[in-house]
Design a protein around this nucleic acid. Sequence first.
DNA 1: CATGAATGAGATTTCATTCAT
DNA 2: GATGAATGAAATCTCATTCAT
Lengths: 203, 203, 203, 203
Amino acid sequence: MTLELRKQPSQARSKAMVDTILDATARVLVERGYAKTNTNIVAELAGISVGSLYRYYPNKNALIHALQERHVGKMLGVFLNSTANMTSEGSLAGDLKALIDALVAAHLLEPELNRILEEELMTSYHIPNNDVRQKFFAGTRVLLNRHRAELTIDDIDLAAFVVVRILKVLVKNVVLPVPAGVDASKLQAEILPVVLGYLTQSR
Amino acid sequence: MTLELRKQPSQARSKAMVDTILDATARVLVERGYAKTNTNIVAELAGISVGSLYRYYPNKNALIHALQERHVGKMLGVFLNSTANMTSEGSLAGDLKALIDALVAAHLLEPELNRILEEELMTSYHIPNNDVRQKFFAGTRVLLNRHRAELTIDDIDLAAFVVVRILKVLVKNVVLPVPAGVDASKLQAEILPVVLGYLTQSR
Amino acid sequence: MTLELRKQPSQARSKAMVDTILDATARVLVERGYAKTNTNIVAELAGISVGSLYRYYPNKNALIHALQERHVGKMLGVFLNSTANMTSEGSLAGDLKALIDALVAAHLLEPELNRILEEELMTSYHIPNNDVRQKFFAGTRVLLNRHRAELTIDDIDLAAFVVVRILKVLVKNVVLPVPAGVDASKLQAEILPVVLGYLTQSR
Amino acid sequence: MTLELRKQPSQARSKAMVDTILDATARVLVERGYAKTNTNIVAELAGISVGSLYRYYPNKNALIHALQERHVGKMLGVFLNSTANMTSEGSLAGDLKALIDALVAAHLLEPELNRILEEELMTSYHIPNNDVRQKFFAGTRVLLNRHRAELTIDDIDLAAFVVVRILKVLVKNVVLPVPAGVDASKLQAEILPVVLGYLTQSR
DNA sequence: CATGAATGAGATTTCATTCAT
DNA sequence: GATGAATGAAATCTCATTCAT
């Protein structure tokens, strides 16, 4: 009964604008943190008026949401790309190596933004990339299953969970500024041993 | 007969008041998230006026800061307590096990608050417990050094860094709500193998 | 063979367009109320661009104004039509009956729109149909004058004023949703007695 | 689970402030109409800051609502007061006269505000005084019932409905600016004959 | 002429902080 | 010292109107 048509800007022009807006949002978010991010600044940095911003996203929430989705999408793209030429008959070590490299590549995209979206906003917004997380977990499970013979651990679900968490922190730390005394590239090289050691140690 | 029924010494009063305030802050933070936390609600929940709140803490920043410090202090207390009866001549496995248990005990204190203080506020507030982190890292380094002979890894700094990160995520995940299909206690039992596997695998 | 398939004469086009626009305006007004009516929605519902809307009406005021005028015109049309075959030598009762029926017919047109235009917008817009009101009042005065002999009231102006007001409310209530327990058709039948009773009672 | 305590300003201080605010709201409403009424102007006219306004009323809606309630309350007070010394054994004419006088007295309070609250806001807000309307209708029904013997109409509900509507318009018109050529006091004197004529005419 | 994205003034609302009592 | 009402700067959001295409 209520008239509710709210016109979205047309596809063609939108694409560029949307990107400009989300770029600005990302920049503000990274430079000032969520608490100090506001729509006026985003609009200004995007070089548009607040009104325009609200033509594209009906509220601040939607804006952040869209940024999250774009970011996750980008990372997923990089990840899948890095993974594409990965034959499925590699060794466990080879597969894990490829996985780690792909993950690092994906996280190299916009590490600080990624951190903010994952950490600062965890509470505020229902994370839209649960989907991606789920898929990543599932993928890891499949990988482990394929090499089940070599593993010294029985509970694949548990192992996948642990591996996913480990990969996530370590990769993030490879990519984010790391304390003096630690070398990022050495750290990256260390990830495979960590996971391999865990999965194949004699128990 | 001197008047004995006078106000408590301000020291004592402050002590209790400070705790009440920080308790309220913690509760609001956990129940509403940082974005929806405001000083008026904190004061209300603490059962005092905003004015009084500002007598104890000159601004919102200081308030959050104080809460962080108290929280870190508490966790440190629990940790040190769990560590106290740890003789320094244990095996590597034994030492690590004790470390993990102490960490879990500390994180069991107020997991959600801990998460918020560590994640949501990372950007906004310069973490006051860098100190503690430093010490924890150093302690881990010492521990690893003590068992250097058993380790298959040379770079102790790197190893300590990796171990610290792994311990942190996994412990956090033991303590925080975990996805269906994963069992928190099994997860906890898995931490030692992870670290041990990493440190002592044949390379 | 001259090109015959060209644009319709702008007169004709305008005519249809104007109607489309005012129809949309009316619908939005009725469905959302004045406070939530805005030009963008009107344009959208009319199937044209805002720009075009502003080509037809220079501002929101003019738009509402035009709708009012059209609406009043329509009602007047229906009213005059119902009145057309009314011979001027009827009885007082007959004349009043005809008047009431014509009024009801007119108000049956778009009761809700009518209500909004008359009530919600009374303050914001100087009503353009004062003219019509004036004429209606004058007509009523003439009618009463014709039957002055039967009336027990001397002040015809006063009587006409009272009758006009009574007719207006009651007719409106016949036509608008009426509370449970009251029957609209019975209510309509009651209007004549009310007016007749007033005008011809023994004083 | 969510902390929702929102403190209302304390009783004592509130009373005066609330009145000041609602007075200002009424004035703005009458002077500018609803569409042009905004919280900034209300606050300014009330001599307080917007923030303060929002301490008392959580949003614009609530503000208007409160004004409506106060206004209806006031009118009801005047009405009941005028009605107080009305013995229940009067004649029909006497009772109706008293009723009309009480109504006029009530509407004399703030006629313009009343009009705006009743007309401009009918759509926007669920009218809080349905209650009062109900009671007024019921009271009228009781009155008519008491004098049922004298009435020439059977359907008391219908009669009460009609009488209530007639009283409402005419009283309103007595109190609101009336077109030249009509005298407000004469008009008021005319209300009783209208109603009496309707109820007691020979049919 | 038509379009509809863009504008930006202005409206609503929030909340850290102050200060009179 | 305590209080909590008051503040007002700043954030979110709306929409009549314009103007480049």
